[in-house]
Design a protein around this nucleic acid. Structure first.
Lengths: 336, 336
DNA sequence: GCGGATGGGTGAAGCGATTCATTCGCCCGG
DNA sequence: CCGGGCGAATGAATCGCTTCACCCATCCGC
């Protein structure tokens, strides 16, 4: 493997000069510069990032750790973060904790060993304890789609309570009085907040709290949604509407309704959450609460860059909260 | 930042011993080992991956470069590759060329600088020239979902001609005599092969080649599919069936049919390709040609590991070709 | 009692870059 | 004619780790 010394020798200059040609070309005389550059090209020299890192003490990589790469919502977050980071000259390492705390810890320690510039993370560990490692290593991080109780932790999130309220208000306005909430693992804050929003909407409409029944799915994916859908059909008094904690669940529920030949939205209205691209392409186009996923990725990356590139002293920790938006489609509009 | 020297000093041993405690604990006496380990824990020492890499000459990272992270097919490939690589102690860096040759080149040179152990790549550059860089750097790579003309290039792919044939045979058997193929950029081999398979099926059934009309989509995603769908409706003689180069296109076409109130499958049968999870959850569950995406990722990663971990001399380059499978669903089954 | 294992540990070399104090010409003004 | 200033290039130190040749007791067998 050809190194900087080989280039220096071939070009008849010192290694320092070669380094300057690469990193501060203006310090080198024109003639020397072109000579060195042509040797670099001829030898196919590629500088070693690990050597630079070792010297610099920090890598040029930003890490992104998400809960589920199978969920297009996170894919969108990733694409927003990636674009921003690359514009700033950083690479992005996207990893998937698959909602497992142990995988999360494994990845976080991998990041620490890599000395990544910073981490964007949607924590799987509800206690937030898993991030202590980053904190003690002094690695900056920004929470994505989650807020910390600690105001000194940066985050970009969406107001899930407001989102849940939007969804429930919509169903209530359509006349539904018996709604099922398909949630997920109860320790996931999003799941709780979206439900809280729905409950708030019911209360505001003067409806009893027991108008909302919860079915808790194992995971937040399509197949768990299918299961939840069939459980829903087994309920004593069948509800007329379902609000799902995310679109994957909603798509699963929709499939279950199809299988049971229950008409959506006439016999069962469905509202999802996230407004992933596939929501609009579903069996019945899905009403959903849209989250600005790409912007979240972008904002989170910008926040991290601000903390990591500029003087850390003039960085103020912030907790940005974005507003969701209801997108009404066929799955909740009776009488097409 | 605490380094190995700090640990050594605190523990009263040499740096070599600390290194041994970490990497070859059996060489160190029990008593010393536990003492060092407790110092490591107390100081929160994290070894620097860049320093190890520099010394070792190669990183512990495998790169995966895909065409479109918005396509669940590639997400599945990534998950298969990731699991395999991590089991072997390698991290995976997943990147998205978004079908752009320039992004692809940028990423490939990033990989070279990082001295990644190897690269799994679905090339965006149809000429294959973009991989010359890897070759000249001696970085092993495996093509995913593409075969090279050069038998010395490892690859894992699926027989797209067979897949196209399956799809067309199915439509022919259902009585369709006028089929549209919704392809994509013509330089994409998959797009061409799947069409070739369909044409072969027509020929084998004794049908004229002009029973197949091609509509070429701009990109291989849902919105391009919508466009293709409306163009399809503008054709002079409306066909009775559509075969799409992938499921995203098919979902887009499906949306267009919905918008135009054309019944699927009665007025228009649709067959997709990839069998992504969302295909089954679509407006009308989508008939599709299933590709073993997770296995592809796994096999490709295994192949790369074999080349990279074992003695390179006893590695035989291979071109694995898997067989696709037709999954029939409502979108091509008339008379429900 | 002495040569040779053997287990446990040391410490310096080196990986490939960056950086900075230093050197080397050269020109210019006094 | 000489000192200063300046642009250009040098080369050694350094980053944090792994590895390897070597050292030091201790113990064993003859």
């Amino acid at each position: 493997m050809v190194g900087i010394k080989d280039v220096a020798r071939q070009a008849g200059v010192s290694v320092g000069t070669v380094s300057n040609v690469i990193n501060r070309p203006d310090l080198v005389a024109e003639e020397t510069r072109t000579r060195v550059q042509s040797v670099i090209a001829r030898l196919g020299y590629v500088r070693s990032e690990s050597a630079r890192q070792l010297r610099a003490g920090a890598s040029r990589i930003m890490a992104l750790l998400v809960l589920d790469m199978g969920n297009p919502f996170f894919v969108a977050v990733a694409s927003g973060a990636e674009r921003t980071a690359r514009a700033a000259g950083l690479g992005v390492m996207v990893c998937n904790s698959a909602q497992s705390v142990s995988e999360e810890l494994e990845y976080l320690s991998l990041f620490a060993e890599q000395r990544v510039r910073g981490v964007l993370v949607t924590p799987a560990d509800p206690t937030g304890r898993s991030l202590d490692g980053l904190r003690s290593q002094g690695i900056p991080f920004v929470l994505v789609d989650r807020v910390s109780a600690d105001p000194d932790v940066c985050s970009v999130s969406v107001d899930d309570v407001a989102g849940g309220r939007l969804a429930a208000q919509h169903l209530i306005a359509a006349g539904h009085r018996s709604i099922v909430y398909v949630g997920g693992p109860p320790e996931v804050p999003q799941v709780r907040d979206r439900k809280a929003g729905a409950l708030a909407a019911l209360a505001e409409a003067g409806l009893p709290a027991d108008s909302l029944t919860e079915i808790s799915a194992e995971r937040l994916d399509v197949s768990a949604g299918r299961d939840a859908g069939s459980r829903l059909l087994g309920l004593g008094k069948r509800p007329t509407a379902v609000f799902c904690a995310n679109d994957l669940l909603a798509l699963g529920v929709l499939q279950a309704m199809f299988a049971a030949r229950i008409s959506v939205p006439d016999e069962m209205a469905i509202v999802g959450y996230d407004d992933i691209e596939f929501a609009a392409a579903a069996a019945v186009p899905l009403t959903s609460v849209r989250q600005p996923a790409v912007s979240m990725g972008r904002l989170a990356a910008e926040m991290l860059l601000e903390e990591t590139v500029g003087d850390p002293a003039d960085h103020r920790h912030r907790q940005t909260v974005l507003q969701p938006e209801l997108v009404v489609r066929g799955s909740s509009l009776p009488g097409r």
